[in-house]
């Protein structure tokens, strides 16, 4: 019988994969996709909790997360496009303006 732990384990591993992508990939588009992975990992955990505690709230939360994630992707991609236009690059090493 598959229980809550199994779903949570899948969620945790997926989350870690997403973090690896954010921390190690240099292409900003892939980083953005890795963020989607992280959000999806959270969604999975939410739905699993909702299902196994017999509470609809978790699924409602996932609904909102998906909505906000869609908005986030749209804005993020718009920002990337604007950045790319100005700097002609999508690599993080080339974007070190924050260093004095």
């Amino acid at each position: 019988m598959i229980g809550l732990e199994d779903y949570l384990t899948v969620s945790a591993i997926l989350f870690s994969i997403g973090v690896v992508g954010v921390v190690m990939r240099r292409n900003l588009f892939i980083i953005l996709m890795s963020l989607e992975l992280i959000l999806n990992a959270a969604n999975l955990a939410m739905v699993a909790f909702s299902r196994f505690s017999n509470n609809i709230d978790g699924q409602m939360m996932v609904f909102f997360i998906i909505t906000v994630a869609a908005a986030e992707v749209a804005v993020g991609l718009a920002l990337l496009v604007a950045l790319y236009r100005r700097r002609q690059t999508a690599y993080t090493e080339d974007l070190t303006n924050m260093k004095l």
């Binding site: 899948v10 591993i13 997926l14 994969i17 997403g18 690896v20 992508g21 190690m24 990939r25 892939i30 996709m33 890795s34 992975l37």
Partner: peptide, 10 residues
């Protein structure tokens, strides 16, 4: 899910 997720990243 996990394999495809991994392939997204690497």
């Amino acid at each position: 899910t996990l394999i495809c997720g991994l392939l997204v990243v690497a």
